[in-house]
Design a protein around this nucleic acid. Structure first.
Lengths: 331, 331
DNA sequence: TCCTCCTTCGAAATCGTTTTCGTCAATATT
DNA sequence: AATATTGACGAAAACGATTTCGAAGGAGGA
């Protein structure tokens, strides 16, 4: 492998000079700069990042952390979408992305071993002390969905999203709109419920507590269970606003099972816009989280933070309603 | 940050000795070893991985590469599953995992910049010269799904999977079994078609070319289109074996659209077992690819390869049939 | 007693960069 | 003409580990 000394020798200069042109210092003449660059190109010289990191104390590495026992992370479509956008943005800022596991020595120590410049905590469970230890350290972090002290946070404007959904249903003529809420221990669960209430208030509809059910989890089964209950109500809702797409699938299952048709008999709106929302039949109307924007914002904020610039502690990203087939005008 | 010299000073030994106990050399006495370890523990010393990499030429980093323009990668449930399993296995072997993008300078150079010990090419498009350049280099690679020269390859036993599917349908009494094949330019497409024919042969059913359609892509639309054609056949198939779950969704859509019921009127079998297969209604019977096993095998093979051990060039992983609601006995 | 052989350890070179500071010549200033 | 300034470059010291090879000292053998 050719190193910086080879380049220096070939160009008849010192390694200092080579290093300077490689790092865009101005104090080297255009002539030698061009000469060095040419040689670098010809021999295909690639600076050794370990050596560079050793002497600059910057690795240009961003760590990705997620609470492993939550069993989401990579496999969840929402997070992989955010992660993909994040990755793409930090890459264009010059970083690479490395996974940090918490195995054995914990997240913090692993981050220190790798000397990451910053970390993105994708799925945070604040009960995980390994994580809070990381948040409380000197290492620059950003996260999404769940707040912790003054760690910069980027997430969807859940209230606004809920209002979009409710407005849409009201436009279609619905008045009895049920809501399956996320666990109210989660911020998202609370805010989406808030937005639901606000949406009703805006339309002058009175809030009916019997139309709201708190789900146990953000999963499909919970949706199935909750919908079963709603269907037993003396007066059935004509529309259901569900706090996430996966849960909406369970809801749809329950509706089908009792012989009703999604869309025709009961309109359903989800939240997230995961991949399958558009693939099922009827396709799901849903509040789309702008994963690209979230990932990109996270990347930019983390970069600023690494460079000691001031950053916003909270960033809200707008959601967007995607109307498909699961919502129809009230007959 | 405390470094190895601090430890040496505190223990009253040289850095050489500290390094030796940290790397499990035998030539240091039990007493000093214990003393050093104790101090390391107390002050929370963490070796600097850049320095270590610089002097050992091993980074303990594995690169993850995927053809970006294919627009799969992270967001595709199958690959994220394999990747998750791979990551987990290499982590327990002591590596960390870093994403390598091809931006600007190409995959190979980026791998060299980071000095990765090896790379896992998750989604390979062999038309991508950036990728073949990487494969043809000295860097140890493994990949899945698509073969290239003697790069170690791990993938599902597609023929065996097809046979499972066909056997199942035959057990249920079906005889007119259609197949929507993947693009025959892909190995998976070919092998699954092969297995389909073999399954029929095993059951003594004659192959009927009119029941086989080659899809344009591994996506939902292709399934929709192909199924439309199959439904126009003078004698409709009673069952369809589809080369992937996503495509099966399109198939289901087409079946519903013409007033038939999946399961009752036409049985459908997919391939992959992506997340939504179990979430749709009726839930999809499918051939499950063992993502965990594939990821794990890839990790072990890559590790061996890095350590200059002999490895198998091709490794087949068994598939498994997951019977759900989309297949029922022929009436 | 002398010699050999282990065991245990350390001095110092090395890995490939960056960065500070000094040198030296050429140019600008008075 | 003497001095001050500027521009272009290099010597050498980091950065924090690993590893080779030699040395010291004690144990064992003849």
């Amino acid at each position: 492998m050719v190193d910086i000394r080879d380049i220096a020798r070939l160009a008849g200069v010192s390694t200092a000079t080579v290093s300077k042109v490689l790092n865009n210092y101005t104090e080297v003449s255009d002539a030698t700069k061009a000469r060095i660059l040419k040689i670098v190109e010809e021999v295909g010289y690639i600076p050794n990042s370990s050596a560079r990191a050793l002497s600059t104390k910057r690795t240009w590495l961003i760590g990705i952390v997620y609470s492993e026992h939550l069993h989401i992370g990579l496999e969840h479509n929402y997070f992989s979408g955010v992660l993909e956008a994040f990755k793409s943005e930090v890459e264009s800022l010059g970083y690479d992305v490395v996974f940090i596991s918490g195995k054995d020595i914990g997240y913090l120590k692993r981050c220190q071993v790798r000397n990451v410049d910053g970390v993105f905590v994708v799925t945070a469970d604040m009960m995980d002390t390994g994580l809070t230890e990381l948040f409380d350290s000197k290492i620059k972090c950003v996260t999404t969905d769940v707040p912790y002290k003054s760690i910069p946070l980027v997430y969807s404007d859940n209230r606004q999203g809920s209002i979009l959904a409710i407005d849409h249903l009201i436009q279609l003529g619905h008045r009895r709109i049920a809501h399956i809420a996320g666990p109210l221990t989660t911020i998202a669960g609370q805010e989406r419920l808030d937005g639901y209430r606000q949406g009703l208030v805006n339309a002058g509809i009175e809030f009916d507590a019997s139309l709201v059910i708190e789900a146990a989890e953000y999963d499909s089964n919970s949706g199935y269970e909750c919908m079963k209950k709603l269907l037993k109500l003396p007066q059935r809702p004509t529309a259901v606003y569900v706090m996430c797409d996966l849960t909406a699938l369970g809801v749809i299952h329950a509706i089908n099972e009792c012989g009703l048709k999604v869309g025709e008999d009961i309109s359903v709106v989800g939240f997230d816009d995961i991949e399958l929302a558009s693939h099922i039949h009827p396709a799901l109307t849903t509040v789309k989280q702008d994963r690209k924007a979230i990932g990109k914002a996270l990347a930019q904020i983390l970069n600023k933070s690494i460079n000691h610039e001031k950053v916003d502690v909270r960033t809200l990203i707008d959601t967007e309603l995607v109307v498909r087939e699961s919502t129809t005008p009230l007959k």
